[in-house]
Design a protein around this nucleic acid. Sequence first.
DNA 1: GGCCAGAAGTGGTCTGAGGACTTACGCTGG
DNA 2: CCAGCGTAAGTCCTCAGACCACTTCTGGCC
Lengths: 234, 234
Amino acid sequence: MAATDKALAGLRQMIASGELGPGAKFPPEPELCDHLGVSRSSLREAARSLAALGVIESRHGSGTYVSALDPAEIISRFSLSVELIPLEGVLQLLEVRRVLEAHATAAAAARQDPELEEKLGDILDKLEATTDAGEIQALDAEFHGSICAAGGNPTVTALTGVIRGRGGHYRIFEPGADFEAIKQTSDRGHRAILAAIAHRDPAAAATAASAHIAQTELWLRALRPQPQVALEDD
Amino acid sequence: MAATDKALAGLRQMIASGELGPGAKFPPEPELCDHLGVSRSSLREAARSLAALGVIESRHGSGTYVSALDPAEIISRFSLSVELIPLEGVLQLLEVRRVLEAHATAAAAARQDPELEEKLGDILDKLEATTDAGEIQALDAEFHGSICAAGGNPTVTALTGVIRGRGGHYRIFEPGADFEAIKQTSDRGHRAILAAIAHRDPAAAATAASAHIAQTELWLRALRPQPQVALEDD
DNA sequence: GGCCAGAAGTGGTCTGAGGACTTACGCTGG
DNA sequence: CCAGCGTAAGTCCTCAGACCACTTCTGGCC
């Protein structure tokens, strides 16, 4: 087995065996090198792999630690790769989002939470009042994200959030020929979701959310726009 | 910005900008170091991060390439981290699997595919005839995996597969007090799913799949067994 | 008791060298 | 001319050593 793979397997085994639980601290790098029988370069490359996957965290000057191993945090790491997926793959991911978000929206509707409804109403008021593409995207994310969070499963919230972020790179809401029509359809979809939640109707909420996201898929398939290339600074 | 982060951002930007598409080859490491203004160590650590996320692939002696950027392949990389998630997080993930697999099973039922039904029947015949834990797990994965594949969305298949693999580390099917009862309930659940698919009844298929996985969640919550610690060799 | 400076511990980065593997070229023999 | 093969170039992989940057703890000072 190659050196880096050996180090990778060793580090993972230390966690999988229970020797190191969430938040635990690894021995210093020189000690790990000795224990695993690899050079420091190879150990560090293996550690970078696990850090990229959200399994461990290196803190400069302090040490290397096992992460919380929380699935929501681990899934969030996927945005680094998902943001690079081409349109064809994004459409497959949007189906995942549609199914999961319909489920989460239904769960949110089953709850009795006036504060949530008020918050969602405020978001939609702002959303319907703006035509700025960036603001639309941010408010849309806040609307759907709040609903998913109310659904009660942080992992679902994280997964749908990553996919939503990827879709947002496409310029559906840039001013253009169909801007008004698209914006109105989108706004109506949001109101339908909120109405279903306010009526405590999980089935209607799921249907409304599913239809809303399916509409986004249709726009993407039809427009096939080029994604924005700019990446945020890390 | 730290050196490794600078290299990471640079590599991602080369892909995001469209300069390098799926399958494209990167310049040699020394050239990239010069271009990005970092040392080879830092560049290699950044490359390892992206390789762990399934975005790039380094081939010894050949070069470094952009991956196919296929969402199913990228999601498969998650098994490295998902396999380390503790039970509490696995339950959140199982809800994701339940929702997605119900959806995929419904899609499979909507198709008319006698070959699939025959294949699934054969798998269940073997599954009902064995009591070996490893064989049960393999056949169960083949059964559900075949159905998801028939659902038509490879990304859904990959995601459910990763989660199923994680759940399989728990020893539900180890011989014990409730082994017989659990096995019978599981077998009946599989037959119900197959029957719904054979009857071309998507709604029934979704319900059967959802109930089957929900049952697994209940067992996991009740038993809270310790996961097997052994990891497969890479 | 609180604050601050120094020291120890630890990860981050760079440089240089040699090894291992893949690929492509050109030679040889048919 | 073509197939087979060996060599050479190209590229990534691993190691070793040194130094830097950041965090944390300790001890003394006010």
